[in-house]
Design a protein around this nucleic acid. Structure first.
Lengths: 228, 228
DNA sequence: TAGATTGTTAATCGATTAACAATC
DNA sequence: TAGATTGTTAATCGATTAACAATC
């Protein structure tokens, strides 16, 4: 569901048959997506002071069946305690290990307007190990200001920032009319993941992944089940 | 897929066996989610002046297999032309019919901060038939200002606005600490769909659907396939 | 112990894909 | 006609679910 998937091809891997996944095996698209969702809920639950959580509670927040959650997790180890549930803290650690996303990952934000400022000053990315290392804007008056402690820079600095700070993700909070040009520069600089908050349909080479935010799509979907 | 689904139960309907769907049959979660995605791309393609689009192009933008797209669509009629593709305009109309979302739907926005202002002044909801009829904020200084032509009101007006303007969706662009209280008031006022931009895990009755925006989750997921 | 919840099996259903005839 | 792309079939794979023993 709503899921925005990454690629329509899941290349069949050699040792990718059945049974528990070995190290180096690639997760299926579905499993990776669901693990990411569990992580989101777990991190918020931890913030709220929860120590343990059951598969049933995870199911309520993620809208994923509780049997599937236990099944997904048990494929990687026995993380839970019968009669108790899962320890929030250790499950966060385990899932991060599985997803190879335990470290810090640097992102560059484009656009210092309302949306850009909202993103820069929120915890949504920071909570998941993403650090905004630079904000870019075309407006010379915006350059030099700080949002969430990060200074706004001119677009001409893009290539240097990507190289020096090892930026792996570009987040586009620019008008639709400017999005393709920024995407082109990101591709040029070697960034492989673009998160697009604009409505623009972006053209990128096949090795680059674009995720377009689409709140209205999610609403349409919810609305269907409300109306039907 | 990483979609955010609506409910883990798809109640089996009487005439819900096989073959083409009759009127009144409920779409499966997956089909409804995918149709919504097609719609997003189609509407943007139309904005860009495209007249026709092939299942292959839709596949590139949605990351959904082109065979599945043709299959999904052909279940409802022969909308395409062999050798040509689908007419963008008529496909938009057809999908809206299927999803029962041809009309206007009113939404109320909570929070007139950076994020609220960004949402109010963008087309993302308007393009899909959602109209923001009111913006609410607790800050008395914000009340009375206008964003995207819509005035900011006090929370005390909530119940009247929901009733008079037939609000079906509440969009939460408030701090996490305020989200649950607003959600409670929305539930009280009878709103059944809540779109949550905060990180707060919301507690709502079972008949209410919460969709929580989670850009970091989508990034984690993309990052996994980049790192693996 | 009693209650709760995991881990796991087995059975079913829907998604995915390749392939290709039909036809624009 | 030649090229492109739909509509559809058939085969496979993964998701979903109920059920329940194991065990905290």
């Amino acid at each position: 569901m709503n899921e925005t998937s990454i690629s329509e091809q899941t290349p069949a891997e050699p040792g990718d048959i059945d049974g528990p996944l070995g190290v180096g095996d690639r997760l299926s698209l579905g499993v990776a997506a669901r693990l990411s969702r569990y992580l989101q809920v777990l991190i918020q639950a931890r913030k709220m002071g929860r120590e343990t959580i059951s598969s049933q509670e995870l199911a309520e927040y993620t809208h994923i069946n509780s049997t599937q959650i236990r099944r997904d997790l048990s494929g990687f180890g026995k993380f839970g305690k019968r009669g108790v549930g899962y320890r929030v803290d250790s499950l966060v650690t385990e899932i991060r290990k599985i997803l190879h996303t335990s470290g810090q990952h640097n992102i560059a934000l484009f656009g210092a307007g309302h949306l850009g400022q909202a993103i820069a000053s929120s915890d949504i990315f920071a909570d998941h190990g993403f650090r905004i290392v630079a904000i870019f804007d075309v407006d010379p008056d915006a350059v030099g200001q700080k949002h969430g402690g990060v200074p706004v820079r001119a677009l001409s600095d893009l290539e240097a920032v990507v190289r020096e700070d090892e930026v792996v993700v570009g987040v586009l909070a620019v008008p639709a009319s400017a999005a393709q040009a920024v995407a082109d520069q990101l591709v040029e600089a070697g960034v492989k993941i673009i998160f697009n908050y604009s409505e623009q349909l972006l053209q990128v080479p096949p090795e680059v992944t674009v995720h377009t935010s689409s709140p209205a799509v999610d609403l349409l979907y919810a609305l269907y089940f409300y109306l039907a």
